[in-house]
Write a protein that binds this DNA or RNA. Structure first.
Lengths: 211, 211
DNA sequence: ATTTACAGAACGATCGTTCGTTCAGAAGAC
DNA sequence: GTCTTCTGAACGAACGATCGTTCTGTAAAT
């Protein structure tokens, strides 16, 4: 029975960052689970679905993960880690000007969501399928990324470079623009990922009333 | 086992628009299902969970809906209908100026997502849990709402009132700002729903480079 | 008397997980 | 260099629980 599905996830394989997941069968499990969880959601994809796609028996998965929830937890944690590293790295390389810092953050944020659409979807939609204990590492990472964004907005305001009507609402809007990329952006369209990132940078600077 | 959960959904009852769902037990089922589907997702909430919250036996639900999927389908359809009616009504009342039209659309869009956060979440996250046939009515409504937004952006560009770097990306960003409201906005905060809508209107006009 | 809304029991299917086993390959003993 | 031991990954069967749904009966309302 066919389901509707975001158009941006056309790629046959779900992209998992090279740094994440380890190697061998363990990594294969994470890659296929990423694909299935993104398409069917955590509760909608069964261990047997996952095993079938891997051409393994369901029981074989338990040699690599202690439960289905632990597979999701690792995806969600790794996704948040890659995102935070990307945003933080861009920020550190951006110098002291809040406008440059904001450009760097938005660019990194957009690149992540355009480059890893499956991971972005799973990270954002399935985190709350985890018990608090398993979600905690990802929640902590998310808090850091949010704080970076809020701090740059606030610093820009304090320095007179940004003049948004409402700082928190602006920060939320900036985050939202990136978060939704996997649901509409088609990487094979006329707008590639790099161009999209630059367009979002431009939109954000306009929103903030920057130079 | 506690799960993480959007902060904006603090309200005890999940709000369902008065126009939607009918009356009596049928409406109660939709209200409680809305609450559960928003919190646990469609696959994560069982018929027995739903019946327990309603203080009914599972079998009693089938006097009102022919399947679990039909409950979700009705929520998703009604949600899209209320959203489209709201946006279209605002647009029709706005006159011919694209700036006024955009203000009206963004205001209606934001009000919907702030006023019906549970419904907005279910509409956006659980639509793809439905087989194409059951999703079709909602998909058709969604297409109309998207077209309204895109048309207003395009008309504003043609008339020289908007100058976004990329029309489609701008339209997506505008939609995204509203869609994410249920995940962060706390209606009991200093920023109420009406103020939030005005802030988003302001952000959007800046983005579009309008007057 | 018919219809409606529910209860209660039960259906087969599928869920996540565990069990005992097999088998290939590495490590160590002789 | 051969034999033995151990380890890790995988299979196939099975577990109890829960899934969505259906059936039968009943009590109240029309």
């Amino acid at each position: 029975m066919p389901r509707t599905f975001p158009s941006g996830l056309t790629s046959k394989k779900a992209l998992l960052p090279p740094s994440a997941g380890g190697d061998g069968t363990r990594r294969r499990i994470l890659e296929v689970a990423l694909q299935l969880f993104a398409r069917d959601s955590f509760h909608g994809a069964s261990i047997r679905d996952l095993a079938r796609a891997l051409e393994l028996q369901p029981s074989a998965l338990y040699a690599h993960f202690s439960s289905k929830e632990h597979v999701l937890a690792e995806l969600v944690r790794a996704g948040h880690e890659v995102h935070l590293d990307s945003v933080r790295g861009a920020l550190l390389a951006a110098g002291a000007d809040p406008v440059d810092q904001m450009k760097a953050i938005v660019r990194a944020h957009a690149r992540f969501h355009a480059g890893y659409p499956h991971l972005a979807i799973v990270v954002n939609e399935e985190l709350h399928a985890l018990p608090a204990e398993l979600a905690a590492p990802a929640v902590a990472l998310r808090g850091q990324a949010t704080a970076l964004m809020v701090d740059v907005v606030q610093r820009g305001i304090d320095m007179g470079r940004f003049k948004p009507t409402h700082a928190a609402a602006a920060a939320a809007a900036i985050g939202a623009m990136g978060l939704r990329i996997p649901y509409w952006h088609d990487p094979s369209s006329d707008l590639d990922s790099e161009q999209l990132a630059e367009v979002q940078v431009d939109l954000v600077l306009r929103m903030l009333g920057g130079a």
